[in-house]
Amino acid sequence: MSRRDALRYATAASALAVLSAATGARTPTASAAAPTLIDYAMRQIPAQDIRAAGHSGVINYVSTSRPGSSFGAKPITLPYAKSLVAAGLVIVSNYQYGKPGGTAPSDFTRGYAGGVADARTGWALHTAAGGGQSAPIFFSVDDDIDRETWNRLALPWFRGINSVIGVQRTGIYAGIRPCQWATADGVIGRSRTPGKVWAWQTRSWSNGQIYPGAVLYQRIIDTASNPGPVVGGIRVDVNDVLAQDCGQWNLHP
């Protein structure tokens, strides 16, 4: 194990203790080295199946399905959120409606006005499901973009989001470079964990590097060629927790 990985897992182990203490959950034996949250869209996975698989919680959508699709886990609902909390699981909010090559364009391409609309939708769905009033929503840049695209499209989109919910409640899901740009441009908030910001970094487009400021790292990405683990009958993505405060609802009432 590299020194970077050793430090990452040490941080994650500390985070798991806080996650468990905050929810009353026991340390999941399957994730003793690193607390993990799963993300998925196909359908709602029963809380007991998530616990049985050894995960500490979920990252769930506060967005609706794209035209022509019907994802059972989009958006998270109040009854489902209550079932997760009752099982001692934590919840983090994510917004993604469009997708590259999908039936709706990538959200970040819609600029400032799109950011305003997306923030309003995301916050309404987040609060309807019982999301914490000071908890962040991670807005997705699910594409490999360059700095020019960031400056021209994504940055105005984030500023539109900021105008509705504020910087402190805004987070980003992206590869390493947009996470860094979002931090430098001041459009995402800060975790209570020192040195950490609301950056949920995906392994994709990150060249094997992990942004030191990230609170979450999407280590396993479910694809047809590399299927993710099965939890509750469906394949999921797996995310390492890199901070004691990763934006979970129960720490942000």
Rank of each mutant, 00 (worst) to 15 (best):
T27M: 04
T27W: 04
T29G: 03
S31P: 01
A33R: 00
T36P: 02
L37M: 10
L37S: 07
D39F: 12
D39I: 00
R43W: 00
Q44S: 14
P46V: 09
P46E: 09
D49P: 09
I50K: 06
A52G: 09
A52W: 03
A52I: 11
A53F: 07
H55M: 15
S56P: 04
V58E: 11
I59E: 07
I59A: 13
N60D: 07
Y61K: 12
S63G: 07
S65E: 07
G68C: 08
G68I: 09
S69Q: 15
F71K: 13
F71T: 07
A73E: 05
K74Y: 02
K74H: 04
P75M: 11
P75C: 11
I76R: 10
I76F: 03
P79A: 14
P79H: 13
P79E: 13
A81D: 06
K82Y: 14
S83N: 08
L84F: 05
V85F: 10
A87I: 08
A87R: 04
A87Y: 12
L89V: 04
I91C: 06
I91G: 01
V92G: 01
V92M: 09
S93G: 09
N94C: 14
Y95V: 01
Y95F: 12
Y95G: 02
Y97F: 11
Y97E: 08
G98C: 09
K99I: 05
G101P: 12
G101A: 12
G102Y: 01
T103I: 11
A104H: 04
A104L: 10
S106E: 15
D107Y: 03
D107K: 09
D107V: 03
T109D: 08
R110C: 03
R110A: 08
G111F: 01
G111I: 09
G111A: 15
A113P: 05
A113H: 02
V116K: 00
A117K: 03
A117N: 08
D118Q: 10
A119N: 05
R120Y: 02
T121S: 15
T121E: 15
T127L: 15
G130K: 11
G130R: 10
G132M: 03
Q133N: 15
A135S: 10
A135V: 06
F139V: 02
F139C: 06
D142N: 13
D143G: 10
D144T: 02
I145P: 05
I145T: 10
R147I: 06
E148I: 14
T149F: 07
T149G: 13
W150G: 05
